[in-house]
């Protein structure tokens, strides 16, 4: 394994972890909102949040690029922000987060769908307000699904390529992640490096999916038996 490969692996783990951390709490809140609210607004928000899942990742990347560009809507010319993150690891985190969020939010929504709303009502009658009830009843009861959501989000972030390459580029030691390193290795005929990267991806994916399978088979992480 050469230094560039090692750097790509470490960067990927850092980017994916950070992206998961950033999107997890907002996605859990959104997932709860999508699960409990059946209004037109909630459906509309849900659709918008889900879009990155169905768009070509390069399209999402391109849109991000336009947003963050110097002459984009967030840039100094319009909103006066100096967001100088393009072609840095921060852009890779942003791309991974945007691409992982729909998966996390939708999985969280399914997790909350499985929580009996009457238990939340019961908690309310015992003197707890809606926010406390969310934290002390809904989240613990949905914990299994929420862990699965985090794992899926992490794996999505690890494998993210199209949007990342568009906004962060594919610069060895700087913004090259696992996915873009495999692409480079294939392009330059470095088969050995490609196999090493693929083996690592397999191991990572296997552990993640197996962990979520384990979670799915338990009644709940917090349920006592």
């Amino acid at each position: 394994m050469n230094d560039a490969t090692a750097s790509a692996i470490i960067l990927t783990l850092q980017v994916a972890s950070l992206a998961t951390l950033i999107v997890f709490i907002p996605s859990v809140v959104l997932g709860y909102y999508f699960s409990r609210s059946k209004t037109m607004t909630s459906r509309l928000v849900s659709t918008v949040v889900t879009l990155p899942l169905v768009l070509p990742p390069t399209a999402v990347g391109y849109l991000l690029l336009r947003f963050l560009a110097v002459d984009g809507p967030l840039g100094p010319e319009i909103l006066g922000l100096r967001i100088d993150i393009l072609l840095t690891w921060k852009a890779a985190v942003l791309a991974a987060a945007v691409m992982a969020m729909p998966l996390v939010a939708r999985t969280a929504r399914v997790a909350f769908d499985g929580v009996d709303g009457r238990l939340e009502m019961m908690n309310r009658t015992l003197g707890y307000g809606p926010y406390e009830t969310f934290l002390c009843t809904s989240v613990p009861l949905a914990s299994r699904g929420l862990f699965a959501a985090a794992i899926l989000g992490f794996t999505r972030a690890v494998g993210e390529f199209g949007a990342t390459v568009t906004v962060a580029g594919n610069i060895p030691f700087k913004t090259q992640t696992l996915a873009s390193a495999i692409f480079s290795a294939q392009q330059t005929g470095q088969h050995h490096e490609a196999y090493v990267l693929i083996a690592l991806s397999l191991a990572l994916g296997f552990v993640a999916v197996y962990a979520s399978e384990l979670l799915a088979n338990r009644p709940s992480l917090l349920h006592r038996t």
Partner: peptide, 11 residues
């Protein structure tokens, strides 16, 4: 409140 199903917190 004590409903028919009890609604104990399973966690």
């Amino acid at each position: 409140y004590v409903p028919q199903s009890g609604l104990l917190f399973p966690h």
